[in-house]
Simulated assay, not measured.
Amino acid sequence: MCEQSKLPEVEYYTVNDRPVKMVSTTDGGGRVLVMNLDTGEFEPDMSYLSRCYNPEQDVERLSETMFDQYVTELRREIDEKN
Rank of each mutant, 00 (worst) to 15 (best):
E9K: 13
R31T: 09
C52G: 06
R18S: 03
V23G: 04
T39P: 10
V20W: 04
M22A: 04
R75E: 10
E3S: 09
M35G: 11
R76I: 02
F67T: 02
L74D: 04
I78H: 04
P55L: 11
E77M: 11
L74K: 10
G30A: 14
E41P: 00
T39H: 07
L37K: 15
M35S: 06
K21F: 02
V20L: 09
V59N: 01
T14A: 04
Y53I: 07
N54V: 05
R51Q: 14
L62E: 01
V71I: 06
D38P: 00
L37G: 05
S47L: 09
R76V: 05
V20I: 05
V10A: 03
S5I: 03
E64N: 01
G28F: 04
F67K: 00
M66D: 15
M22V: 03
Y53T: 11
S47I: 03
M35N: 08
L33T: 05
S50A: 14
L62W: 06
M1P: 11
E73S: 10
S63G: 00
E43C: 11
V32G: 01
G30H: 13
M66P: 01
K6M: 13
E80P: 00
V59M: 01
T72V: 07
Q4L: 09
I78C: 09
N82H: 07
E64A: 06
T39Q: 04
